[in-house]
Design a protein around this nucleic acid. Structure first.
Lengths: 205, 205
DNA sequence: TAGAAAATTGTACATTCATACAAAAAACTA
DNA sequence: TAGTTTTTTGTATGAATGTACAATTTTCTA
């Protein structure tokens, strides 16, 4: 999987610098405002440097989205690690999908533009799929033993969709706070679970 | 509000022709593949005609999104009209947001690209806002009397977000069927309502 | 330190696309 | 029908932008 190309130390540094610069520009100007010139300027380099370290703009974008997903995932994983009870893992999972200080319109819009780009860019679509698969897997393992397998799929689907929907509303400028979003998802889960399952879970709350 | 510019019959025809052509191209190629040349070609006209009937490409796009929203809204309204009981109006509202034969990846992707574009285009953002406001208003009136005003906001927010999330999943290539989507939203609503409210509603089911 | 390799710069080129416009065609009118 | 207005065409132009590349600077090495 990992490429066996040996890289100079400088090369690695420049590559990550450019990817991070791209990420910053992306957060501020969105995908449409993400030009090679701006990326290089943000990184404090010359416009031509990009072609030297990357095959093209797409490779930078790819690295950037991966960078972004890794950040998000690390947040979720970190929160999951500190959780002891199943209910806490639950909350951690939901909260992890609304990172503190990151549930903001510009971030939401940036994420949204990647979703839209995934429609015509197979690589983005792949990253998207991987990301969703991981989210679903996390949700599934959190629900395992509480729900019968049959309703597991529809539950993870709904919870995932609800999370995405909250981000979408945020992107659209709806004044949804982080707490509201989290509360809504948690409320949905509570509403979905059957009485006994809920009781056994809330006992650990 | 409505412009008082008097228009030739031909002018009206051409304008709607172009808007509809734009809509078709948009559905097939997404917002990024929506060029003036393609629009005119789809309408069977010369590339230059667009500038004659419209101020620019943005005006066509604006008309197209409005056209699209109107179609969606008409579907919802039509379904609402035939509904007698409150519960039926409810189902109509949910189903109306997943039009038959329209809950498909390419439509979802098209819609998504407009959402993304709304981030940088104020006019799109405005249309977006109007659309959401109307959806919320419809949801609110359907819930009126069943929920106390306090929880009304969070309920409409969650239901709206869930609907959007389903579309997003569809755009991402997730194999969500129309029935699954509708079922999920309805299930969410049932889970949200308190026991008595739900009972009174389901009595009309 | 001198020469080679690596890294960086700035620019030039090609492409895409929206828009402007002059010319041609069609429709209308007196 | 002759002249005028409306409509349509095809092309030209300019702006934005990704990418290639020759020239220059920096770093490494023997």
């Amino acid at each position: 999987m990992a490429e066996k190309v040996k890289r100079t130390r400088i090369e690695d540094i420049r590559r990550t610098e450019l990817v991070r610069a791209a990420h910053r520009v992306f957060m501020e100007h969105g995908l449409s405002g993400l030009t090679t010139a701006r990326i290089c300027a943000e990184a404090g380099m010359s416009p031509g440097i990009l072609a030297y370290y990357f095959k093209g703009k797409d490779e930078v974008l790819f690295g950037m989205v991966r960078h972004n997903n890794r950040i998000l995932m690390e947040d979720v994983i970190a929160k999951l690690k500190t959780a002891k009870t199943r209910w806490q893992r639950f909350i951690a999972l939901v909260e992890g999908n609304f990172p503190e200080n990151a549930f903001e319109p510009n971030v939401a819009r940036a994420w949204l533009s990647v979703c839209a780009a995934a429609a015509s860019n197979p690589q983005f679509a792949l990253l998207q799929t991987i990301f969703y698969r991981r989210l679903n897997s996390n949700l599934a393992s959190a629900f395992a033993g509480v729900l019968e397998p049959k309703s597991l799929r529809e539950t993870t689907l709904a919870v995932g969709a609800l999370i995405d929907g909250m981000w979408l509303r945020k992107a659209a400028g709806g004044d949804v706070s982080r707490d509201e979003a989290i509360l809504a998802v948690v409320a949905h889960i509570k509403g979905t679970l059957t009485g006994e399952a809920l009781a056994s879970l809330r006992a650990q709350e």
